[in-house]
Amino acid sequence: MDKAELGAHILSRYNEELERLRTDVLHMGGLAESQVQAALRSLSDGNATLASEVVRNESRVNQYEVEIDNECNRILATRAPTASDLRLVVAMIKTITDLERVGDEANKIAHISLRHSGMDRGLGDGYRVVRHLGRTVLEHLHEALDVFARLDAQAAIATVRRDRAVDEEFDAVQRQCITFMIEDPRTIRASIDLLWVARALERVGDHAKNMCEYVIYMVGGRDVRHTSLHEVELALKAGQAGKAGQAADGAAREGA
């Protein structure tokens, strides 16, 4: 399945419905991504106004989830999608659940940011501990949305593979926070909050990974959760070679 194939139903309204849904999911993804970005910026800049804005926008992410969910249900009931259409709708239903949770994590970070902006001692420059983790996670989230937009299974596999880096960085942040707490007990409160932020970011990374797995399912029809990435890669390549062969056969037939 590639993007070009999405545009040729006999029922043009069905086409439009699916295309609109896909666009909505991407909008929702964009919103969730900017929520995480803003939450992190509010933390690094100690900007309470920005943090409040994130908290306010949280309901918009939720609203998207409800609307897209309803529309997917309607399509399932009225169009009875099959094959790649079915996989697309199922993948979208799952993707928006993850995106909604990404929104929740952004909300958590914004709340921590709000709390510290009112404190004398605050986080200080403690933010730098999670800065790199934040950047990595945002990158992954961006890639996951990109992969969904382009239906690129190979890129999705690469992103899933990179999730390990997030886990490693999260471990590093934990160790650093523990060190802070041992060295100076007055930093315990701030360190625990930093840990919460790191934990939220790590969860965002997991959601991005899930979304990539749905894209692999959508494109290749293979459920890759709980299987080795290497196997998936091989199977996808074999599948693509098969489809390319069919396309070539078709072209040869038409030529004849």
Partner: peptide, 19 residues
């Protein structure tokens, strides 16, 4: 066949893209 057919022609037919 109805979730992940291996031939493109089958896919086109069952998803209503045939014709």
């Amino acid at each position: 066949i109805f979730t992940n057919p291996s031939k493109k022609a089958t896919e086109d037919y069952i998803t209503g893209r045939y014709g």
